[in-house]
Structure formats: C-alpha cells, structure tokens
Design a protein around this nucleic acid. Structure first.
Length: 415
RNA sequence: GUGACUGUAGCUCAGUUGGUUAGAGCGCUGGUUUGUGGUACCGGAGGCCGGGGGUUCAAAUCCCCUCAGUCACCCCA
C-alpha cells in the first residue's frame, strides 16, 4: 500500500525537533511572563477580511499565499498567515487594551509558498505586541525582549539587528511619491522584476537583490530627508535609546517591511550567513492598524520570530533529557507485579521509567542499553521471594539489592 | 508561480552498455543450553525501485507526464 504523506510543506514534529521547539517556546514564555506580557491565543481560522484589509491587497501574502476557502456556511475563511492582524482584531473585539496592553502568542501560521530551507507552508511563530500611545519607549521595550530572547536561546551573537524608519503616514507617503518619481525616471535601467514592483509598491524596489538595480538604489532618495519633525524625532530618540542600552544595531535605509500596516520603526534580526532565509525575527510599528479594525486610535509595536528558523540556528544545542531507567523481570509471571509497582509509585523527580516485556534477560538488558537507559531495575524470582529488586547501573556495571518498599525512595532520592 | 538537482529496505546508499530470483552497511528480530548489557558469531523478516503511461523479447536503468523532497528566485518569519 502506498504511504500517505503529509501535505506539501507541512511536517510531523517529533524527536529532537520537537524538543528544540519546546525549548524555544519554554524560554520565550518565561521571558514574556517576566516582563508582564499576557498570553493570547487567537483562532487559526479567521474571516478573510482580517488580513485582506490590513496587510494590503497588493502584498504577496494576500494576493497569492493565503489559504482561503468558502466554508459550508458560505463564509470566506482563511488559515491565518500571520499574527499581528489577528491580534489587532482580537483587541478590538474584546476591548482588551483597557485592561492590558502587552501580549504574547505562539502557534502555527500558514502561507502557500514553495517550500525550501527555513520555509514551510505550515510554520510556527512566537510573537509579542505592545499596544498603546505612540511612544518610542515601547519600541525599545519590545526590542529589549527580543534581545533577551535571542540571547537566552543562545543565538544573539550570530545575528545582526538591522533597523530603519518608514516615518508616520504623511512622511511615508511623501517619501513614496519622491521615490516613485525617481524610479520612474530611471526605470529603463531597472530589472524587469523591479519595473513591476515599481507599479505595485515602489518601496519594495529598495530591497531588490538584482545587481542592475543596486546602482540605482544607492542613488535613490533617502527616507531621512522626507521625515516630518515628529517622525524624525521619534526615530532619533529610538536610536539614542539603543545606544544608551548598548544594543548593537546597523542602520539600513533599504530595509522595508512587506506589509502595508507598518510605519515608523522597522527592524529585522538576520543571520550573517549567506543563506537566503536569513531573517529570523522581524517587527515594527503599526500605528493605525487597531483603528482600521474599528478600535480606538492606538498605536502598536511588536515582532514575530519563526520557530523553525530559530531552531535551524540552534545547532546541536541538545536538550538534556531526563534520566531514564528500565524495569523488567526475568520471568513473565512477575510482569504483573511490576505493573503493580508502576501503578503504586509516586514520582516527584524528573525521571523516566520504561517497562520492558519482550525477550530473555539478555535481550532486555541489551534493549535497555540501546535505548540509553541509565540503569535497570531487575526483578528476579529469587529476589521476589525476599521482597527485593536488583538495581544495576550501566556506567559502572555495579549491582545492589533494594527492598521493594524502598523503590520509590530510591528513584526520588538516590538516582 | 519560475528554475536546478534528487526519489531503490525503517535509515544511509550501491546497482555496469537495458538482461536470471534487486544488493550492502546500520537498525529491527530470533538464536549461540540455565539469571546479566555495551564489543563476537550464525540465522530471519522487511522493497509495487515515488506514482502513471510509453519504447522493447526484456526497464530500477531509456522517453513522456505527474507527485514529493532539497536548494535557489519571487516573497517572507
């Protein structure tokens, strides 16, 4: 029979991979709680408009990557492609900002792209959002959390923080206008791809990798000359703050974010490796997004990181697994006695116990050794008669007898 | 969506210019007389050669289609 595979771009998570995922999630959650962020879990299914309205119709995510479908009730639904818009929706729907304004979340996201290294159709993100008045201090606080998080999982040193500003709405649109004009004047020298980008979203031309585009991009107008006083002040304060906090960063005026809702701050943590999917964590400010969902005129800033991409950079950061011991008998008649022990036992310590039933004594010992047991509890007939059990430690090969009623103590204390 | 490379046992891979019953290592499993593992020896199971079509007396091998994986582009976390 032909095996049924997972859907393209999705995968079963197990073994060391899920240990790494859990390791990342665990550290992320602990940090978020420490900084008083509140967990929120929004549905994977959303109404299509949550994303079509906010991300921008021209964005690739909306125009070709969303899993959307009409359900049996004739509603247009999507598997969420990202977290921020869904969170903004949730904040408005539940009036959440009144009680609390810092959130963290994690879970699967879906985008129908061609899979490759660091890119899946179902992938997992962790993210935070800070909702409130427009204030650069919030941006800093959110970046601090990113710094701590990446440091905690041990990859901060492999990454570079790149940062840029898009200015507020007015600045952004006046810059957009100037940029477009400049690019149109130079359009003959642009690559075919960039000519298309120019029509859809001129900003996107700035992060083109085509060599022919590079020459022109370098001469393009600088956003900094188009910032109004408010935008300029905001960005300068933010940069001063980063200096004060001794957070290393690199200004990159060509850094733009793909989604329409961003303004002011945009930042990305990238690996220095040449790998293509090198953005591991990215975020920015999205003033106006909440209002667009019918909420108050509140700003917001946040970031999201791809768990798979983080894990790719973790490399051999092995989780220390709990100590495992095997328990088995020399005689199958005694197996039920072992189950009785397992049923009665109360374990407080982080250990694992594995009950083996097949094979003779030799096979069971061999099996225990193969699956990486620290030692074995062996129940033989002679010992059974004396209410004892053998403890054998593999590393030393030493054995000793333990009274049956002492097993619990032994496992909890002596191991 | 575009392009390149790759699909043979649970895993890593051999398989000659098309030619008997498709191989190895690891893993799994049984044994090497009684109750002691890691290292030895002997057996066993396990393959629609990714799927479909075509060429041929004959296809894992050649051709076409398709699906999937890997990597890159587009784009993004």
């Amino acid at each position: 029979m032909q095996k049924i595979r997972t859907v393209r771009g999705t995968k079963d998570l197990y073994g060391v991979e899920i240990l790494s995922h859990n390791n990342v999630l665990d550290k992320f959650c602990k940090l978020c709680k420490f900084y008083n962020y509140n967990q929120i879990c929004t549905p994977i299914l959303e109404h299509s408009e949550v994303f079509t309205k906010s991300l921008g119709i021209s964005s690739d995510i909306v125009s070709k990557e969303m899993y959307n479908f009409i359900d049996q009730g004739n509603e247009s639904l999507v598997l969420r492609p990202e977290g921020t818009a869904a969170l903004a929706r949730a904040i408005v729907a539940n009036s959440l900002h009144q009680e609390n304004n810092k959130f963290f979340y994690f879970g699967p996201m879906f985008r129908r792209e061609r899979p490759q290294s660091g890119r899946l159709r179902q992938f997992h993100q962790v993210g935070v959002e800070y909702v409130g008045k427009t204030n650069y201090l919030y941006d800093l606080e959110v970046i601090i959390l990113a710094e701590k998080f990446l440091g905690e999982i041990g990859i901060r040193d492999k990454l570079v923080l790149e940062i840029n500003t898009l200015g507020n709405e007015q600045s952004r649109s006046s810059y957009n206008k100037a940029l477009k004009e400049f690019l149109i004047n130079n359009s003959t020298k642009l690559s075919e791809a960039s000519k298309k980008r120019l029509q859809k979203n001129p900003l996107r031309v700035l992060d083109s990798k085509e060599s022919e585009d590079q020459e022109i991009i370098i001469k393009s107008p600088d956003i900094k000359n188009y910032l109004d006083p408010e935008s300029k002040n905001f960005f300068e304060s933010l940069i001063k703050g980063l200096d004060k906090l001794k957070i290393k960063y690199k200004l990159n005026r060509f850094l733009v974010r793909g989604l329409d809702y961003y303004n002011h701050t945009a930042f990305e943590y990238k690996t220095s490796e040449i790998k293509s999917q090198n953005t591991v964590l990215a975020g920015g400010r999205y003033d106006g997004l909440i209002k667009s969902f019918g909420g108050d005129d509140l700003g917001g800033v946040g970031w999201a990181a791809g768990v798979e991409r983080l894990v790719l950079n973790l490399l051999n950061l092995k989780n220390k697994e709990d100590r495992m011991v095997c328990i088995f008998s020399t005689n199958e008649n005694l197996d039920i006695e072992i189950l009785k022990i397992l049923n009665d036992i109360k374990i407080k310590k982080k250990i694992q116990i594995s009950f083996l039933i097949t094979g003779n004594l030799k096979k069971k010992l061999s099996k225990a050794n193969k699956i990486g047991a620290y030692g074995c509890l062996i129940f033989g007939e002679d010992e059974w008669k004396k209410n004892q059990i053998i403890w054998k430690e593999f590393k030393t090969g030493n054995q000793k007898l333990i009274a049956l009623n002492e097993i619990e103590n032994f496992l909890n204390k002596d191991l």
